[in-house]
Design a protein around this nucleic acid. Structure first.
Lengths: 209, 209, 209, 209
DNA sequence: GATGAATGAGTCTTCATTCAT
DNA sequence: AATGAATGAAGACTCATTCAT
């Protein structure tokens, strides 16, 4: 029986607090706020995450892990490719899995951890599979690319001045519109889809909300 | 006959600089950065806008003025109600009119200026007319409300780590998807549209990008 | 008539304050303490010296400028080579020109400014001339090298828990002993004199006291 | 018969680690660093030395014990008074017995332990005897006082940016110069020797390096 | 009217010290 | 008896805002 170790649960608490605080107040929120929300002292946050930057990166890692899980579960459990894609998007945008806050100064010279970059690759793969399957089945419009999906998450998750549950409701609402648009074979979308570099740059600014 | 006075053009320069700087670096960007971009001293910015908060409010006012102009022009120049709505959204999301950055701490107790609140009313009215006309003509799905439109602007204008011209391209791309969704009479959207209070709260956090 | 510009005098005040505070409390002293002593706000110190490190470097530059001036004046005004060397050392160790506080963590990866490195070269040259002249005249023992002089300054200027005027008196007292030792052709000194690299490393840790 | 108990050797390890760390990084070095060097946990250091201040005091006590031993051994084993004094100074400045780092904030209100003050008295006595004997024999200049000796240790042991073995070599080198100066009956030294109060104040800032 | 230097308050980060295991 | 995680206080540095020129 897998024991969720104490420190693992402790980490979760800090990451959850960080996610909540950063969502509500932006990345400009003080570390002290995160610590208070997690019910610990500042220094305890710093022991585990040696800088604000690393804390933010781990918030992103948590988001990506969730996306990966949802993508894999959708493929495994949903036989219809379109339903799989739709379910994946719906779940990712549901409470706790909302996605998209940005880093404020975007800190040019930062280098990302092995763990993060590895996760990014696996997320790319998983989304690509979902998208290709849906296109193959003729249910997803052909001029949409897998790189569009994460961007849509970001679009669909702005920092609205409401409580989280209402935000989730609105995410669902507008995802509805987008899904209709994704399905229809209507008039061609303008502009090229993001390429792999753009997609990666975007990932570097991701976070759950 | 209104002459574009020297100080009016000067104001424009400051607002444009603020818009650019805040879009690129977030509202955490220093006032000094805005001043430098505008090619003036900090104190000059402060003479015209006595606090950062007021500067931000004027950035928002500029955005709303633009929205208002576009809405009125769309109604006046575009006979087809659907085309009018689509053109309005397309123009607002085009370069220089992108919309949606948020204030980080959301400064609860701030009170908004007469000018701002007046503008907000007129924007509401103008959008409502565009939306009602399109619904009347049976070209816009019935379960969409006029309050949805500004939220969609916000959704369609996230702070992506790219240059502004590419951001504009992507805004256009995803607006394409949304327009398809708006038109189709597909399955009912989940969740209620924002009510007037939500809509106003949102306005308080608006800005051009 | 050379006007000592306002900002130049202002700089002097900050450097003097830094020298005093660092001498009394070590480099661990807060920047706020330096600012208070200079009669300005912290941020004003930071405007001119963007980091504590740079402030310290400028304190060192001030010390080196003084050494250089004294060395040149000694050569020019003192015909006897031994008297020139003795006067140089006495003056450098007198109040305001005391020399030798160390940087606490010695901050490995720091790179020094052009200005500092240039000054270091000129100081080396000037001291070398004084020393070689005194050796040539047979008045300075042969097994002493020019690189020894700065080290002796450092040795003769420890951070004693007294007021500056008494410290200066004690520096003079022990310099007396050292000068006697430098003159006599007594038994050979143990150990090699510092080489150029050692000498430069030492310079990187210098400061007036 | 005193057995070197386990805890005594343990204490030695901590003191040795503290001496090494403080010498290399100054007293600003973290307690955790000392603990790591000693190969124990922080809390273990704190069990024995309830504050950083007490640890530092014990580092000083260790230095004084060594000075005392050397002084007594020199008197006992060296019949010639000058040789005794010279040997004493040489040994004290040799590796492991180097002397002189200062406490950075000098912590005004601290009161010193019985043990420390007792040791200080005995050190004073022992040095006085060595000095008086050498003066009596006419081998040490008359205008030097016993209070000068410890100050000279401090002067001869600055925190140079080198490894300890080279530092010891340089201490020996400049001690050579000072010994020549101490012996010669040259021109009178300027300034009075430290009085007893100055000497005690100095002791309060002593440490082995 | 316009400027840039000066300031104090606020944020990130570190470290002496304590406590639960 | 020994450990290492947790904490609050303190220091470097930044930035909105204010004046003297």
């Amino acid at each position: 029986m897998p024991t969720t170790s104490r420190s693992a649960r402790y980490d979760d608490r800090v990451i959850a607090a960080a996610r909540a605080v950063f969502t509500e107040q932006g990345f400009a929120a003080p570390m002290a706020e995160v610590a208070k929300r997690a019910g610990v002292g500042v220094a305890s946050v710093y022991r585990r995450y040696p800088s604000k930057h690393e804390l933010v990166e781990h918030v992103r890692i948590a988001a990506f892990r969730l996306i990966l899980e949802e993508a894999e579960a959708a493929r495994a459990e949903e036989p219809d490719p379109w339903q799989a894609l739709a379910r994946f998007m719906r779940r990712c945008l549901r409470e706790g899995a909302g996605i998209g806050t940005v880093l404020p100064p975007m800190d040019q010279q930062h280098t990302y951890s092995e763990e993060f970059r590895d996760l990014r690759l696996r997320v790319a793969k998983a989304i690509e599979e979902l998208v290709e399957a849906a296109k193959h089945a003729g249910e997803l419009r052909a001029d949409v690319d897998w790189t569009d999906i994460l961007l849509l998450f970001k679009h669909l998750n702005p920092a609205l001045p409401t409580n989280e549950s209402r935000r989730a409701e609105l995410r669902a609402r507008y995802l509805g519109l987008v899904l209709e648009g994704l399905r229809a074979g209507g008039s061609r979308l303008p502009g090229p889809a993001p390429d792999r570099d753009e997609w990666q740059a975007l990932c570097d600014n991701f976070a759950t909300s």
